[in-house]
Design a binder for these strands. Structure first.
Lengths: 395, 395
DNA sequence: GGCAATTTGGTTGCGTTGGCAACATATTGA
DNA sequence: TCAATATGTTGCCAACGCAACCAAATTGCC
């Protein structure tokens, strides 16, 4: 591992890049804010009015944004037209799981237009997942043709994904090992495919449209039935690391005398903090459509309180490490970790003997996720929109 | 903490910015590579020859770089002149410690031109540190005047520093609490001052001129007599977090049954992995100028081996967490952690029951620091050069 | 030693592009 | 009607890419 890759950061900038950058910035702002007035754009970007007008009109010509008259601004002066994302471009978001494959059609602004769930009796192989997805997309096509344009497919994978090429290194519950899933789906559908870890995409979604809107530094912890993952945003950008494996919060060591984890280590967060154990002590094992949060908050059972306390203790260790390491402005807890937070909100606010350094602690908020069931659809679509937003003129 | 700061990332780009960006990129490349040929610059930046020539000549006019003839390139064709950083601009690097204040004069390219150590009998107050530093700078001025130009002062503080304004939140060993050190030194000297945590600056130095050259994702662990700190580089940039407190690797939980730490938590890395304990078991407590690495590697004492093993175990926990969280290409161990690594290099290569996820583990190297005693001078100077490199035309 | 091949530099001028300032105009609330 | 805010249009300027020319320096072959 001595390749010493020359960093491609050092790029020269030319006039071409300027326009690309400006178009990209406008589309990104409009996408994430779901619409802004032209004067707001002018202010935010610090460019001239005429320049903004020209840029917006180019985006409108390409049907990437639409200008609509503002209604009742309640302020003096000529009203500035609102620039909204066009509904023409859509991203497809895919989430293969052990018991189903979910495909979403998502518009700019993170609007989920439709969501289709294909139930499965057994975990699919990569080949089968590709075939099923291709079929689902074919079924969608009549409804999309002529109205929408697909910009790409973003896959939220419950496992480790090499983001450079979408190789699924390991998805333990799907039993996928080194499957070049993105490439496979790309050749089956002819649509550009990007893939990433599901929790990382959840983090991007929360950052763009959830509790992390406008924040440059946040961490998302996702608690799923099969484990704990995470997504980190620093400096306003998702933190990927060398190959896109960053954010594995579930494998933080929280208990040296804990259980052995499938990853080969001992006492990982995800071996100690588990949804199934909470269901078990709450007497909800096997029940469908459980409301874990209310079950935990209303329980008077000492066993439940003990297990909640135990798990919050371990979660606190991971929070402490993460806050010390990354100094985020916000930590978002999603999935069953939000239920755990609801069960004892004060516990994580203080963190007791797991206190991060005072300075970092004072500037951080710990909150439940705002986005619900559409989280992974929105996150996946962020991937699908990535190249569109990076260079709108190319579309 | 609900300020929801609007991210100032969304900046428009104008033609002015293009030139600024290009000048900055060239100066940054030349600084970090300590010289590149013009044709290399042309290739790396992807701009036209004439453009590079014009940009380089502007930098040369401002005496920020110098073009010298290349000697013996061993390849056909007209040799391309080497663009080297000029020695005129210098950054001052300051490192206040409990027993001394060290001030360095550093040229572009990270070349330490001089280093002055002012020994102290007791830890200085912030006021006294400012006064001493101002005196040291006055003493330097005759030698600098007419030859060098000071671009700024970068302070490496052994404590938590709010990087936005250089407020020292807490430097436990200096006993500083909320001292606006950067502002104080700025008004005393009239020179722009930036301050940051010492380990973070060490990480920047290793990233720019040490083992991390050219790598976009690395982590630096620094083991000092007073504790363990760290610096993180992701995507080629130092990771600061919301207020610049990121990188506190010393407060990762490694032992839930460990010692209480001054930070209020229990079992932090820096309470379990300590230089003084190593010195003690090696029978070197109180000895001056110890060579801990050789002492540890040559020792046949079982006590020494046991303590080394114990500490490497805890260090392994922190490494595992960090590698899982950040997926770095390289982990650099500095200070006494490098000695610990030397004592048993294989142990950290494997990490045993503290194995990071296979994918992240396969792509990471763990190596000792390359930069020696000048580490903090070089890191501090990086701060001092920051504004110069960001906008060379302003100087 | 001489010559071709190769690589890069120096200079100039042209064309393209994007951003900005200035002017005139439109819309709204008080 | 006025003040405030915003848009539309036009002409100018700065920066860069590129092409074309010539010059320079080096290697390697004859």
């Amino acid at each position: 591992m001595n390749d010493r890759a020359v960093r491609p950061v050092a790029r020269g900038n030319s006039n071409d890049h300027v326009r690309r950058h400006n178009l990209s910035t406008i589309l990104g702002l409009v996408h994430h804010a779901r619409g802004m007035s032209r004067s707001q754009l002018t202010q935010t970007m610090g460019l001239n009015r005429s320049t903004i007008a020209a840029l917006v009109s180019e985006l409108a010509d390409r049907d990437l944004v639409r200008e609509v008259d503002a209604e009742s601004t309640f302020q003096v002066g000529r009203p500035s037209p609102i620039v909204r994302p066009s509904s023409t471009p859509v991203g497809l978001a895919l989430n293969p799981e052990i018991d189903a494959i979910t495909l979403g059609v998502v518009g700019l602004g993170g609007v989920v237009l439709s969501k289709t769930r294909h139930a499965l009796s057994a975990p699919p192989t990569a080949e089968r997942a590709v075939a099923i997805t291709a079929g689902m997309i074919d079924d969608l096509r009549p409804a999309l043709d002529g109205v929408h344009r697909i910009t790409g497919i973003g896959v939220a994978v419950p496992g480790l994904v090499r983001e450079t090429d979408g190789l699924v290194r390991l998805a333990p519950h799907l039993n996928w090992h080194d499957e070049p899933f993105a490439r496979m789906l790309e050749s089956a559908t002819g649509i550009p495919v990007l893939a990433a870890n599901d929790a990382r995409l959840g983090g991007r979604a929360e950052s763009a449209f959830g509790g992390g809107r406008g924040l440059r530094d946040m961490v998302y912890f996702n608690g799923s039935p099969s484990g704990i993952g995470g997504g980190i945003i620093t400096g306003g950008l998702p933190l990927g690391g060398a190959e896109g494996y960053a954010g594995e919060l579930g494998h933080t060591m929280v208990n040296p005398y804990g259980t052995a984890c499938h990853c080969g280590a001992v006492g990982c967060l995800e071996t100690e903090v588990r949804r199934d154990r909470l269901l078990e002590v709450a007497g909800l094992a096997g029940v469908e459509d459980v409301d874990l949060a209310t079950a935990l908050t209303t329980s008077t059972d000492a066993m439940v309180a003990a297990e909640v306390g135990r798990q919050l203790g371990f979660l606190g260790v991971a929070l402490r490490n993460t806050i010390n390491l990354l100094n985020p402005r916000l930590v978002v807890l999603g999935g069953f970790l939000a239920d755990l937070l609801a069960a004892d909100p004060l516990r994580l606010g203080d963190l007791g003997s797991n206190r991060p350094l005072a300075a970092s602690r004072q500037s951080v908020d710990i909150r439940p996720a705002e986005l619900g069931a559409d989280l992974l659809m929105i996150g996946g679509a962020e991937l699908a929109f990535e190249s569109l937003i990076a260079d709108p003129a190319a579309f």
